[in-house]
C-alpha cells in the first residue's frame, strides 16, 4: 500500500527541499507518494525538472499562501 509522506522543506536553505526529497526518496518504497513543502519558488521549477530527468513521476504543484506543495511518486 502506497503511503504519502510530507517533507517539510520550509526554511531549509541547506541542504534545501530538493536534496531533502532525494534523501527521503532513497528511504521510500516504489509506489510511495511524497509531498514536498517549500517556501522557495525555485523548488517549483527545480524539483519537477529533476524528477523527470531521473525518471520518477511528477504528480503536480500547487501554491497556498506562499508555500509550494510539490507531489512526486517513486517509480524505480
Amino acid at each position: 500500500m502506497a503511503e504519502k509522506k510530507i517533507i517539510d522543506g520550509r526554511g531549509s536553505f541547506c541542504p534545501g527541499p530538493l536534496m531533502e526529497l532525494i534523501g527521503v526518496l532513497k528511504m521510500s518504497q516504489i509506489g510511495d507518494e511524497l509531498e514536498v513543502l517549500s517556501n522557495d519558488k525555485g523548488s517549483a521549477k527545480d524539483i519537477p525538472e529533476w524528477v523527470r530527468k531521473v525518471g520518477h513521476e511528477f504528480l503536480g504543484t500547487r501554491e497556498e499562501n506562499g508555500v509550494w506543495h510539490i507531489s512526486v511518486k517513486k517509480t524505480k
Partner: peptide, 10 residues
C-alpha cells in the same frame, strides 16, 4: 553535484 547547481545554497 546532486542538484542543478554546484552547491545547495544558491
Amino acid at each position: 553535484y546532486p542538484i542543478n547547481r554546484v552547491h545547495s545554497l544558491e
